[in-house]
């Protein structure tokens, strides 16, 4: 692996949601559909974006690519990928906590 997973953080929103959707192995289009459902249609990933991002992710071994019974390409998180997602989730939790705290201070001033 060329890069350490820490250097990939922070992830872009697209990359983050793609990793987040991979709690189970999914097809490319399955990822698009799932992210749309998860975000209540807020994020509609373009197929080009998904294809490019998945290609990049499999290059750094964050996800692994294989085919299912019907010979359709399936993407799955690797151990490295799970680690990366965990790091990113923890980071976002801290961001969220800080946001709530500061939001409270801003509201007090009003």
């Amino acid at each position: 692996m060329a890069k350490s997973i820490e250097s990939l953080i922070p992830l872009s929103e697209t990359a983050y949601y793609i990793l987040l959707s991979l709690n189970v192995p999914r097809h490319g289009y399955g990822i698009i559909k799932y992210v749309e459902k998860l975000t209540g249609s807020r994020i509609k990933l373009g197929s080009g974006t998904v294809y490019t991002t998945l290609g990049k992710m499999s290059k750094v071994k964050v996800i692994s690519v294989y085919q299912d019974r019907d010979r359709k390409t399936v993407y799955e998180l690797t151990v490295e990928g799970s680690k990366l997602l965990e790091l990113e989730i923890n980071r976002i939790k801290i961001v969220y906590k800080d946001t709530l705290y500061q939001e409270g201070l801003f509201n007090e001033q009003k």
Partner: peptide, 14 residues
């Protein structure tokens, strides 16, 4: 309008 690239970053890289 459907978007082939949904983010600016990937679009620019392309």
């Amino acid at each position: 309008v459907p978007k082939y690239y949904s983010d600016h970053e990937t679009k620019v890289k392309h």
